[in-house]
């Protein structure tokens, strides 16, 4: 039984225009961050509560990384300033305390993933994929020829693509704007293996181009994806057309972020058994998929993104 508790801000840094990396450590008397670092699975998220009494609801942020540093466990979250709440969060200085709750939801199923793992991310969906990619890489045994390939889409200048490069065999990036790519190329000019990056398109344009160029091996492949809903929808469609299993981490406007308010439901296909990530009961469950209060109802095939997701098999979702 883990209650909402405080954490201490170690760093709250703007890493791209309007995009911040928030690093948290245990605050005095609270081991919330330690607990999250020990338990978290890639794809899970953390509820972050603002200190303002007028903004009550948690902001759910995907876990970008957990680190067992020399100075203690660190939790890394990446967020964008999109409204008053995230604007306020961006003003919090290192040393300040905030309340958090987590880890929330179910993460990606990391095995078995096949020989070609595609990490397809868009914008703020990319940092959580870094956590997944690192875990997959760490679990590979020596001699394992599994290839990790990242396809990353940005609206403007790329971020976290260098980090993905640490764990991936190849990283391909695309930006919707030419200005973004200019900055990116400048930043990477000095590097020997400059990451591949193209401009004017979406991550699906990138995928199509790589396939037609013969640069993407899709044999025995699987997809882990995180990003905005229109992108995930396109990923699901593309994966289906190629016969590749895909896990998608959905974004949703949440209320409570733990399953009580029923604010963030998503329609799922009732005909197919849904064996989602950490919840492998193989049936469509309504409302309370715990052992104690199974309330199955086939006529309403809806699931809570916060509680039953946010990671779902792409084919289970009614897009």
């Amino acid at each position: 039984m883990r209650e909402r508790a405080t954490a201490s801000i170690v760093e709250n840094l703007e890493i791209a225009s309007g995009v911040y990396r928030l690093t948290l450590a245990d605050s005095r008397g609270s081991d919330m961050v330690s607990g999250i670092v020990a338990e978290a699975a890639p794809g899970q998220f953390v509820n972050v509560y603002l200190n303002s009494a007028s903004m009550l609801l948690p902001r759910p942020f995907g876990i970008s990384d957990v680190v067992a540093s020399e100075r203690g466990p660190r939790l890394v979250l990446v967020y964008a300033v999109v409204g008053a709440g995230t604007a306020e969060l961006s003003t919090y200085a290192p040393g300040a305390a905030i309340r958090i709750l987590g880890p929330q939801g179910n993460g990606y199923e990391l095995a078995p993933l096949g020989k070609n793992v595609l990490l397809i991310g868009g914008g703020l969906g990319i940092p959580p994929l870094l956590f997944a990619t690192r875990r997959i890489r760490e679990r590979l045994t020596p001699g394992d020829d599994t290839r990790l390939t990242a396809l990353l889409g940005y609206r403007d200048a790329p971020y976290y693509s260098g980090g993905m490069g640490l764990y991936c065999d190849e990283v391909f990036s695309i930006s919707e704007t030419a200005s973004g790519i200019g900055e990116y190329k400048k930043e990477h000019e000095h590097k020997k293996n400059r990451p591949f990056c193209v401009v004017n398109g979406t991550v699906m344009d990138l995928a199509a181009r790589l396939v037609s160029d013969g640069r993407l091996d899709l044999t025995d492949a699987s997809i882990l994806s995180c990003g905005p809903m229109p992108m995930l929808c396109a990923v699901a469609e593309w994966a289906k057309s190629k016969g590749i299993p895909a896990q998608v981490s959905l974004e949703a406007r949440m209320g409570c972020g733990y399953g009580a308010c029923v604010g963030c439901t998503i329609e799922v296909k009732p005909a197919e058994p849904i064996a989602s990530a950490a919840n492998t009961k193989g049936t469509v469950l309504f409302v309370s998929p715990s052992d104690e209060s199974l309330t199955e109802h086939p006529s309403i095939a809806q699931r809570k993104v916060c509680k039953d997701g946010p990671v779902f098999p792409a084919e289970a979702i009614v897009w």
């Binding site: 209650e3 733990y258 009580a260 029923v262 309370s288 998929p289 715990s290 104690e292 209060s293 509680k307």
Partner: peptide, 8 residues
Amino acid sequence: AVAESGKY
């Protein structure tokens, strides 16, 4: 919600 609130 029974399962969800019951965790806390």
